[in-house]
């Protein structure tokens, strides 16, 4: 059974804007899923629909087997949410605002746990400071502490590292790693591809309210491991010579560029062999260049393909 099970979730706002257009997504317990997408793709709406901040128009969302609308109490008990915006009451003290969050979940006071969370987030020294006296990065740590205060089994991090310093980003990844070891399921949205690469098990791409791809990160990395060598020829050719058929080559439409795809992880890239074969075939090479596929390329490619299809 999936920890988070989303089936055909739709959300149409009052103005008629369709923020979610039939999202299907299953997230396994203990998994870390990174959700990538441009601004306005529906990332935050999807999280809001799961967490109860917005009401889905149609579809079914279950967390830990509990429907988030009908059985909202049981579902929400499992969920911790770190929102994108820094929404904190400025006059409250750090420790009391974190304790308040735990109280909202109906749980008894647990000072030891709160201390442990605050220490882990380097907030313990600031526990008696008012929120408004904290820096932006510290405030974000407070948001994380609040989300962890009721020991959630599913944690949503909505762009947790947008605009934070390197240190907090590293701390964040460390915390995510510790939570993973405790078996907590984590869903994070991000703009940063390297963040997804660093911590996620699977990567999902969302655009215009639809999931375009959900794939194991490692298989994505393999795709990313592909590199392309572009060979610019001095004179155009009409066909790839027979002697070069061993190579995975594509001829550009101008007849002057040959693109060779190869695997950087392979023992031999075949580049030297290709170069020799080119000169044997009597082709004069004018220039060469290489390009690597990155998650970003895959992401941009997916999003722009969709845009073209829509036009």
């Amino acid at each position: 059974m999936a920890m988070v099970d989303i089936r055909d979730a739709r959300k149409t706002y009052d103005g008629g804007f369709e923020a979610l257009r039939g999202v299907d997504l299953q997230i396994q317990e203990g998994e870390i899923l990174a959700l990538l997408g441009p601004n306005g793709a529906g990332k935050t709406t999807l999280i809001s629909a799961i967490c109860g901040i917005t009401q889905p128009t149609a579809g079914q969302i279950e967390v830990g087997g509990h429907d988030v609308v009908r059985d909202y109490r049981e579902a929400r008990k499992l969920i911790g949410l770190v929102p994108q915006e820094i929404n904190l009451e400025p006059f409250e003290k750090v420790a009391s605002t974190v304790a308040f969050s735990r109280g909202l979940f109906g749980l008894p006071k647990n000072d030891a746990l709160i201390e442990q969370i605050l220490r882990k987030l380097s907030l313990w020294e600031k526990r008696n400071d008012r929120v408004m006296a904290l820096s932006g990065g510290m405030k974000r740590r407070v948001l994380i502490a609040k989300a962890l205060s009721h020991e959630p089994r599913v944690l949503f991090l909505d762009e947790p590292t947008a605009g934070v310093d390197v240190e907090l980003r590293r701390d964040m990844w460390q915390i995510v790693e510790e939570l993973r070891q405790d078996g907590v399921t984590i869903i994070l949205t991000t703009h940063y591809i390297e963040e997804a690469e660093a911590i996620a098990d699977r990567v999902g791409v969302i655009n215009k309210g639809q999931i375009l791809l959900v794939e194991d990160k490692d298989s994505l990395m393999t795709r990313m491991g592909k590199k392309e060598l572009t060979v610019e020829l001095d004179a155009p050719i009409s066909d790839i010579p027979q002697s070069l058929s061993d190579f995975d080559l594509t001829l550009g439409s101008d007849g002057k560029t040959l693109v060779y795809a190869y695997d950087t992880a392979a023992e031999r890239t075949g580049i030297a062999r290709l170069m020799a074969a080119l000169s044997e075939a009597g082709l004069v090479v004018r220039d060469v260049s290489t390009a690597q596929n990155s998650l970003e390329d895959i992401f941009v490619g997916l999003v722009s393909d969709e845009q073209e299809a829509a036009q």
Binding site: R76, K77, P83, E89, S101, L104, F105
Partner: peptide, 17 residues
């Protein structure tokens, strides 16, 4: 006030009616 500063998200996502 929670509506204005955005902390209402916490009430909405907590197991409270």
């Amino acid at each position: 006030f929670p509506k204005f500063i955005g902390t209402i998200y916490e009430l909405l996502s907590a197991p409270v009616n």
